[in-house]
């Protein structure tokens, strides 16, 4: 049986196990492109034994639902935002804290360094979730409809859409604004009509969702750099022959590299497009924002595991 999905006899000489991957973004997203390319390489190197089929646009359900689908083996893999893994193991909070990473390269290295993450990434195996690796999910910056932001004081009185969690509301409060959770589908109209003053997201989403047209001031607060994780059902992964597992891991490393490069290229393109739509980008007093949110970081590092990983991340920054 192939719990990961259907077995099809394609052009390949042997039956192919197709790993179905749930994905919440469109086909143009760097993670989709990288996973699709990885699937082709995997198929070639395993002589058609394994391939990958990525289902974009939440067609297999919301991210939270796809975790259960992976746990049950209904689908093999899913790409999951950091905060959702926090709901299964709070220790994942370390990588979701503001200003924990100093650069994309550092995040790419640390979140895929076995010495740092192997314990964390295997911690959910008993629950049917194994974390294979981390993709770059962009860096989140504040944008608004009124003026460029330089210091926390500039955000005073502004309602900024944040992701649905107390931590995010608290973070935005420390940054000087008023964090307002809202489903992404309502945000465009809400900013346009004035329910919200702005939002916070990476350049890709900012441009793709056309928020540049209604909130033209994009300020590089760089407050969050939350990774996206590729998760797999551990039984399915362990069911692969060791040689194929090795190929899989090697190809995943390449996929993560490709995704990081592609993301950079797409950010450049998004900035160009946003500028054409009238957006203005500016640097901010980063130190002031870092100082403002420091208490939040302190309050979240509550046990030895998180403190140790945090120290390792800090060490890698030097």
């Amino acid at each position: 049986a192939t719990p990961s999905g259907s077995s099809t006899t394609a052009a390949a000489p042997v039956a192919t196990t197709v790993f179905k991957v749930a994905f919440n973004q469109p086909e143009t997203h760097p993670e989709y492109i990288a996973l699709k390319a990885m699937g082709e390489r995997l198929k070639q190197r395993t002589n058609g034994a394994y391939s990958i089929d990525v289902f974009p646009n939440e067609t297999l359900g919301a991210q939270a639902d796809t975790i259960q689908s992976v746990q049950s083996g209904t689908i093999a893999m899913s790409v999951i935002g950091g905060s959702l893994l926090e709901s299964l193991n709070p220790d994942f909070v370390v990588f979701d804290l503001p200003y924990v990473f100093t650069s994309q390269a550092q995040q790419r290295a640390v979140t895929n360094d076995p010495a740092v993450v192997s314990g964390l990434y295997s911690s959910l195996d008993s629950k049917g979730v194994h974390v294979l690796g981390a993709f770059y999910g962009g860096v989140r910056n504040v944008y608004n409809k009124t003026k460029p932001i330089n210091t926390p004081a500039d955000l005073a009185g502004m309602k900024i859409r944040v992701m649905q969690s107390d931590t995010n509301i608290e973070m935005m409060k420390l940054m000087g604004g008023t964090g307002t959770p809202m489903g992404q589908g309502d945000v465009y109209t809400a900013i346009q009509s004035g329910v919200l003053d702005g939002g916070e997201n990476n350049e890709l989403i900012y441009s793709t969702l056309k928020h540049d047209e209604i909130a033209p001031y994009y300020s590089y607060t760089r407050h969050l750099m939350v990774p996206d994780y590729l998760i797999i059902n551990p039984e399915i992964f362990n069911g692969m022959p060791a040689a194929d597992q090795k190929i899989f891991q090697e190809e995943l490393v390449k996929a993560i590299d490709q995704e990081n490069t592609e993301f950079g290229a797409q950010v450049d393109a998004a900035i160009t497009a946003a500028k054409a739509a009238g957006a203005k980008f500016n640097e901010v007093d980063t130190a002031a924002f870092q100082k403002a949110v420091a208490p939040l970081t302190e309050s979240k590092l509550t046990d030895d595991v998180t403190r140790k990983i945090y120290a390792q991340v800090q060490a890698a920054a030097k």
């Binding site: 975790i67 259960q68 049950s72 905060s83 709901s87 299964l88 709070p90 107390d166 931590t167 959770p181």
Partner: peptide
């Protein structure tokens, strides 16, 4: 019941209950 079992200790951001 299967969904309940799978998500019993999955925490929910914003509310003091599990999923």
């Amino acid at each position: 019941f299967r969904v309940v079992g799978l998500s019993w200790d999955q925490n929910l951001p914003g509310l003091p209950v599990n999923v």
